[in-house]
């Protein structure tokens, strides 16, 4: 099952709709509440990032009995130094965003922490794609090479 949502870049009060929708779907699928929470935290952070830094983008959620795969793709400014961006507390968000309780520099680390697998691809001037995988079934045993 695949769901696709446009995340608006001009109205950030609307950011969070996609993750809320995915949360509803996961609830109706009867998925473990703890996993739903991890998914919604990770996806919500990514959605907010898109709205703040990238002028919106596309959020996709692919759900199978084994895993939830969230892909967040934007055509924003891109991240010049990914390692720096992944540092807890590092933020390029403007002051007013911080005053709203966002932009504490915990977004990317938080996504990574809540996902079982996390990938960040970015090219300056082209955009950023964050891919997050959350496993539903136990991970395949070593040697199986279980890459999603």
């Amino acid at each position: 099952m695949k769901y696709r949502y446009a995340v608006p870049g001009d109205d950030f009060s609307m950011a969070g709709k996609a993750s809320a929708e995915v949360k509803r779907i996961l609830g109706q699928l009867g998925i473990d509440p703890a996993i739903i929470k991890r998914t919604s935290v990770a996806m919500y952070e990514a959605e907010i990032n898109m709205a703040i830094h990238a002028g919106g983008g596309i959020a996709e959620a692919e759900i199978s009995p084994e895993r939830i795969l969230i892909t967040m793709a934007d055509e924003g400014p891109g991240i010049p130094d990914i390692e720096l961006a992944m540092t807890e507390g590092y933020s390029t968000a403007p002051e007013w965003i911080r005053e709203l309780g966002f932009g504490a520099g915990m977004g990317l680390p938080n996504m990574k922490r809540n996902a079982d697998e996390f990938r960040l691809e970015s090219a300056v001037g082209k955009g950023t794609t964050v891919t997050m995988l959350i496993r539903l079934a136990p991970a395949p045993v070593a040697g199986g090479g279980g890459r999603a």
């Binding site: 969070g16 809320a20 929470k37 919604s40 935290v41 919500y44 952070e45 309780g101 504490a104």
Partner: peptide
């Protein structure tokens, strides 16, 4: 909802 999204730190 906000709490579930990890927003009320």
């Amino acid at each position: 909802e906000a709490l579930e999204n990890g927003k009320l730190k």
